[in-house]
Amino acid sequence: MSWELKNDRPIYIQLIEQIHFRIISGEYKSGSKLPSVRDLAAEASVNPNTMQKALSELEHSGLLVTNRTSGRFITEDQSMIQKMKLDLAKEQLENFMEQLKKLGFSDEEVKTFILESVQ
């Protein structure tokens, strides 16, 4: 997955979101080591200080764990990753519902849409 950054929102917030996504999708595996700040910054073409800021926030939330001598690791706490996944799904769902409401569809109609698209 490549790093896609929009230009109207703070960069570090977008970096956090994309790292979340990479953890959920399994690109960054639970318990594995994260590349260095410098490498990640170069990969995403962002300032190393900005990447550092994003990683610090992720550490603060517990998703990343720092081992002083050997670098940063993705948490081994599966329940935390699972919870993040659910939160993200809820968020997507809310956006989706809001959009369809704006288009004037009722909850019943949306339900039919979903059932149809699942089949």
Binding site: N7, D8, I11, Y12, N47, N49, K53
Partner: peptide, 30 residues
């Protein structure tokens, strides 16, 4: 994307010295 901060200069004076993310946060634009 690679800048920490920006300095805006106009007519020989500094208008603004701020981080890129602060500008995006406050102004909601690049």
């Amino acid at each position: 994307n690679v800048l920490d901060e920006v300095i805006f200069i106009q007519n020989g004076r500094i208008n603004l010295q701020s981080s890129v993310d602060d500008i995006r946060m406050k102004e909601g634009k690049s």
